[in-house]
């Protein structure tokens, strides 16, 4: 037991014999410390590691979609430009900034827990939920426009809008539909993650309201924050790859 204590390794064990050690520990440990951890520090690091393991599976989940994007963009570069030209760059940029603001409010709520401000946690969490909701509202208007312009893949899909309003010629309906399939799947799954994130933040908000988090114990708010930031990172890549691409490269332009 001479080895130094690390946050994830065994810390110094109680010197008392079996049985007695457990009883002594019960009396002294932090009420929020689960019995299978040595210290609050180890407990927090274990939660963070576990969330990262989950986020790695999320990286691969979205990674498969980015891979599909990459392959089809390589195969149908012109359709990617044509499809992308229909996306609303100002709204996409606005949403990018909205998510960046939500990430700031998120870290501020975690920081509030670390410094022991219940009010701070509540205010910043409500801010995070509001920014997240704003993102979804903007996305709703973007989706509605796509439905209106018959740009949703399926029997009613039409390239008429791209040809008539954006002055593009030789638009291939099949591969352009492929672009919109990926657009809706990637942004749709991202939006689903936002909905889950808002639900998660609501639960965390209730916990914060009840004063569950202290400078000693703030694992749930920190770990939920990791998820929230990850969803922000996905959008950081989706925005340039989907929206900015179509600003150039039109045949007519």
């Amino acid at each position: 037991m001479a080895e130094p204590s690390t946050p994830l390794g065994p810390g110094p064990l109680p010197a008392a014999p079996h049985g007695a050690a457990v009883a002594v520990d019960h009396a002294h440990h932090h009420p929020r410390l689960q019995h299978h951890f040595y210290s609050m520090e180890q407990q927090l690091e274990a939660s963070i590691l576990a969330m990262w393991v989950f986020l790695v599976t999320e990286i691969m989940f979205f990674g498969g979609l980015f891979m599909a994007y990459l392959v089809y963009r390589t195969l149908y570069p012109q359709s990617w430009l044509d499809g992308s030209s229909t996306l609303n760059v100002p709204l996409g940029a606005l949403n990018t900034f909205v998510l960046i603001c939500s990430s700031l409010t998120m870290v501020m709520s975690v920081r509030s827990a670390q410094v022991g401000s219940r009010r701070g946690q509540i205010v910043w969490l409500i801010g995070t939920i509001l920014f997240g909701t704003t993102f979804l509202v903007v996305k709703y208007f973007e989706y509605a426009a796509k439905f209106e312009h018959n740009l949703v893949p399926g029997p009613h899909f039409s390239t008429a809008y791209i040809v008539e309003h954006l002055g593009r010629t030789g638009v291939d309906p099949h591969s352009t539909q492929l672009f919109f399939s990926l657009y809706f799947i990637m942004t749709g799954i991202h939006a689903a993650h936002m909905v889950v994130g808002i639900g998660l933040m609501t639960v965390i908000l209730i916990m914060a309201w009840r004063g569950r988090f202290t400078p000693d114990y703030y694992g749930p708010i920190e770990v939920s924050g990791l998820y929230w930031h990850f969803v922000d990172i996905v959008w950081i890549f989706l925005f340039p790859l989907l929206y900015l691409l179509g600003l150039h490269g039109g045949h007519g332009a």
Binding site: T6, E45, L49
Partner: peptide
């Protein structure tokens, strides 16, 4: 600020990507 194990896990995700 995380432990080396968490850092390696995070980096590994992007390496696999």
């Amino acid at each position: 600020h995380n432990t080396p194990l968490t850092k390696v896990t995070a980096i590994a995700g992007f390496v696999w990507l």
